[in-house]
């Protein structure tokens, strides 16, 4: 695993005092953290803790009621989602967010919507297919007919087609068999080696702590604990609450 790039003057992602409201009810209450270039940071927490809401606010799918989001050193707080994608930040959303009626190839090509130069598009397709297993032989199949795991692979591959600099992953292991989870996390580690910055949301705390450099623990919309994963793995509070180990 490559370590974070300390030479970068500003972090790729910097969140300060982020609040997200749904009809007046706060789901995220003043979250602040940053992710440096090349770093893998995990956001962990129970169901309903606000993890997805944080990610959605980072890419502009829900508005930030308060606080700021900086991407690659620029203020991105109010700008629309497609422009954040253009800056280089994209989200692989929770669940099946693929274009079900389109083929696997069309899905992947849409990931390159902003980088559609036909020459490099073909090369990128090959590179992504090498990185994300099992999609190559299914290019002509409708996205909606893929298995859950294959759809997850497709969603990740599609995001990579846009050559993001910051990848946000929302529960890539959700609903997948352990073998597939291992495969997907293997891919994530591979992808990180290519210099990508990754913010990973994951319910599988053990896996998240093994994959990431640092982690933040979210409880009802607030960060209650942060640290290096190597330390958090041994933290008794984490062990009790998230790793299912008795104190």
């Amino acid at each position: 695993m490559n370590g974070p790039d300390a030479s970068a003057s500003e972090p790729d992602l910097e969140v300060a005092g982020l609040h997200v409201l749904y009809g007046g009810i706060a789901a995220v209450k003043g979250v602040s953290f940053s992710v440096a270039r090349g770093e893998i940071v995990a956001l962990i927490g129970a169901n309903g803790a606000g993890k997805t809401s944080v990610l959605k606010a980072l890419v502009g799918l829900v508005p930030a009621a308060r606080g700021s989001v900086r991407l690659f050193g620029r203020d991105a707080t109010g700008i629309p989602t497609h422009r954040r994608t253009a800056l280089g930040a994209t989200l692989v959303p929770e669940g099946r967010a693929i274009f079900a009626g389109m083929t696997v190839r069309e899905n992947l090509e849409l990931g390159a919507f902003l980088k559609r130069d036909p020459v490099t598009l073909g090369q990128r397709l090959e590179r992504v297919l090498a990185l994300v297993p099992r999609l190559g032989e299914r290019l002509a199949q409708a996205g909606g007919t893929l298995s859950g795991g294959e759809q997850q692979m497709l969603a990740i591959g599609r995001a990579l087609m846009g050559e993001p600099r910051l990848l946000l992953l929302d529960e890539p292991s959700l609903g997948l068999a352990p073998k597939l989870v291992a495969q997907i996390f293997g891919s994530i580690v591979e992808i990180a080696k290519t210099g990508l910055t990754i913010l990973l949301v994951e319910q599988n705390t053990r896996l998240a702590l093994e994959t990431a450099h640092r982690a933040h623990v979210l409880v009802t919309g607030e960060i209650v604990l942060s640290g290096r994963c190597s330390e958090l793995r041994d933290d008794p509070r984490i062990k009790a609450a998230y790793l299912g180990e008795a104190l």
Partner: peptide, 8 residues
């Protein structure tokens, strides 16, 4: 939403 994330 997925379309937005593609940069559309």
């Amino acid at each position: 939403d997925a379309a937005r994330l593609m940069g559309i």
